[in-house]
Simulated scan of single mutants.
Amino acid sequence: MSDLRQEFIAFSVKAEVLKFGQFTTKAGRQSPYFFNAGLFHDGATLGQLARFYAQTLLASGVEFDMLFGPAYKGITLASATAVALAAMGRDTSFAYNRKEAKDHGEGGTIVGAKLAGKVVIIDDVISAGTSVRESVDMIRAAGAEPAAVLIALDRMERSGKDGALSEHSAVQQVAKEFGIPVISIANLDDLFTYLSNEAGADLGAHKDAVAAYRKQYGV
């Protein structure tokens, strides 16, 4: 899995989905890197991303019956991962939600397969955990069981403001709150390893900034 994680970091950098510099996060922090899965917006990169998700899920050993993608990014991620899983011999159904309930046709907020059995929630990252909480509520309301959350990158970052940082990261809080594993294709440690060992001189120059950020906010 360590090779897969490093391949994913390199792939994200090449696709310019993972960038380095100075970026302001939702929490108002100045981060030396930025990851935006929405930039996987062509067929080739989305297909490769889905294969990373599928390989990571299968390697995790988590038992699952279907996938769920929270609107909006999760919709594409869950559907693409279902295609990748089918290509690997694991045909899996999927569903996603609408932000607004539909009052005609089939109605409701859930689109796709009926939520049933053990469901894996697929998203890009976990920041505040809001979309996961909403997804868990919808899955349980349908009588199904949330089995895990699968994300692309775990920033391994404590939430809260300077001077009042939480003890755990958003990912750890979600896992603890719902009693389900949160699986990531890669995490901040993998990113740091890439910058330390695999990247060229240009990217390697960002290593110290990432290390300082990890020391200040990391778990």
Rank of each mutant, 00 (worst) to 15 (best):
T130I: 08
D124Y: 02
F192D: 05
V17K: 01
L203N: 11
S159W: 13
E134V: 02
Q173G: 09
R51H: 12
Q30A: 10
F23S: 08
G200A: 03
G28F: 08
M66R: 09
E157M: 11
Y33D: 01
V111K: 11
Y194C: 00
D208S: 02
G204D: 15
L39S: 00
T193F: 06
Q216D: 06
K99A: 00
T25N: 04
D123Q: 14
D103C: 01
H41F: 05
A164F: 12
E145D: 15
A27F: 08
G200N: 07
S159Y: 09
S131K: 11
E167K: 04
A212I: 01
D162W: 05
G218P: 08
F20E: 03
S93L: 06
D202A: 12
H206S: 10
V83S: 08
E198T: 00
L85I: 05
G61S: 10
V171K: 14
M156D: 15
L67G: 11
E100H: 03
V171R: 14
Y33C: 00
S166K: 09
I126H: 10
Q6R: 10
A141D: 09
I122N: 08
E198Q: 07
G179F: 15
I151M: 03
A54R: 02
A80R: 10
A37L: 12
D208M: 01
I9A: 04
A152R: 06
G129Q: 09
G200F: 09
S135C: 04
I75V: 14
V119H: 12
A82P: 03
G89H: 04
A147G: 08
K215R: 07
T24Q: 11
E198P: 01
Y217F: 13
D3T: 09
Y213M: 02
K26C: 03
F11Q: 02
T130F: 10
T193N: 05
R155N: 03
I110G: 15
E198N: 00
Q48Y: 05
H41S: 12
T24S: 07
K99C: 04
K215M: 01
G69N: 15
L115C: 00
A87R: 03
L191M: 10
Q30Y: 11
D137V: 12
I151V: 11
G179P: 11
F52N: 11
S135M: 07
I121V: 11
D189K: 06
K207P: 02
Q22K: 04
Q172N: 04
H206G: 03
A27T: 11
T109K: 13
